[in-house]
Write a protein that binds this DNA or RNA. Structure first.
Lengths: 198, 198
DNA sequence: TACATATGTTAGAGTCTCTAACTTTGGCAA
DNA sequence: TTGCCAAAGTTAGAGACTCTAACATATGTA
């Protein structure tokens, strides 16, 4: 995998390392990832990353930050063209959440479990709020409201916990371990309806 | 923290290391834990653990295994003395789940995220099924059923995803990060009711 | 009481993160 | 065009970590 390169300078090592790190995080998990592995993959010395990142954690934060853009795009697309507040829109939003978790389990796990107290923390919280805002808007519309009131906040949060829990159970393979046969689509649809009832 | 000891032999180093590891997992998280740290805490050389554990991962598996006993006790206690299948019993069961996650976030995270393919895997899956069985029994009783049918499996699974998701959102501090004011008790109670409706 | 075994220790190989000091290269000012 | 500076590489190495090998010391049982 070690990419030999002709030039002394890499071109865009930062991006190369972020991509290598992302791949390794998916292959081995966020905790098994090593800077050295990423260097081998990018074909540079083990000291090179420190021109672009303060330390190992910053590389992971960069992968996270990168992943949140894809996540946001998925969430936005999920409701695009659908009737705001419709069961269809809200169901799709939930499925998009789960889709991201299962296609990028390493990044998903990283995004939620990442160490607090880093440089980009504020920025990432802001992005999280933006994403959550998509759900809040849909739930408000579902009840024909123009305001995000207590009721909307409660129901949106319930939906979040459900898809979040389901995502983790899926990526941690608890569903197969417990020999459960779950139709994810149906499960999300039915329980979205139940949680929005009343 | 380095406990000096008088004797060459420790007495019960295995248990000492498991406890040291558990503490470190809570303090620093499962990924930040190091064998060396545990050795310092237990007051032994860094080679000592290898008389009791094959490698670093086995120490974490032991902590996990240990934690599952406490978890099982919590779950059992939660429904003890309550009317089987009552909302009270099921609500308490969910709260016990969340209680474990928030009091032992490191062990909780470890238990669900632990690497597959280890010695004790089968044993731990069995214990997981036992714990899940407590919920299944309660949900069946809720509907006045003596059998665990599709309907019971579906509803129990929905409850699991909710408390599991809530647990992760709590320990990853997403609720505070998003500035949400959630009354956990009320949230669990209300949504347990909604998910069991019909 | 002796000795086998379990359970410690020390020493060290190999890996990892990160820093310091040096090298190469690209871009810009004169 | 040329020369120089800053950006972005490299090598070397310190210090920490995991795990193994060889050696040391207790413990329990024949």
């Amino acid at each position: 995998m070690t990419a030999k390169r002709a030039n002394y300078h890499h071109g865009d090592l930062r991006a190369g390392l972020v991509e290598a790190t992302r791949q390794l995080v998916e292959e081995k998990g966020p905790d098994r990832f090593s800077v050295s592995d990423a260097c081998r993959a990018a074909g540079v010395s083990t000291a090179a990353p420190y021109r672009h990142f303060g330390d190992r954690d910053e590389m992971l934060v960069a992968v996270c930050s990168d992943g949140m853009e894809r996540f946001h795009a998925l969430m936005t697309d999920a409701v695009a063209g659908k009737t705001p507040g419709s069961m269809e829109a809200i169901h799709h939003l939930g499925m998009a959440y789960i889709k991201f978790a299962t296609t990028e389990p390493g990044v998903f796990r990283l995004s939620f479990g990442i160490a607090r107290e880093h440089e980009k923390e504020a920025e990432m919280i802001e992005r999280g709020k933006q994403n959550y805002g998509i759900l809040l808007t849909q739930v408000a519309a579902h009840y024909g409201k123009s305001m995000i009131d207590e009721h909307v906040l409660d129901r949106a949060f319930a939906l979040w916990t459900m898809v979040h829990g389901l995502s983790f159970l899926l990526i941690d393979e608890k569903i197969t371990a417990m020999d459960l046969q779950i139709d994810i689509e149906a499960m999300v649809r039915d329980n979205t309806r139940r949680l929005l009832a009343e």
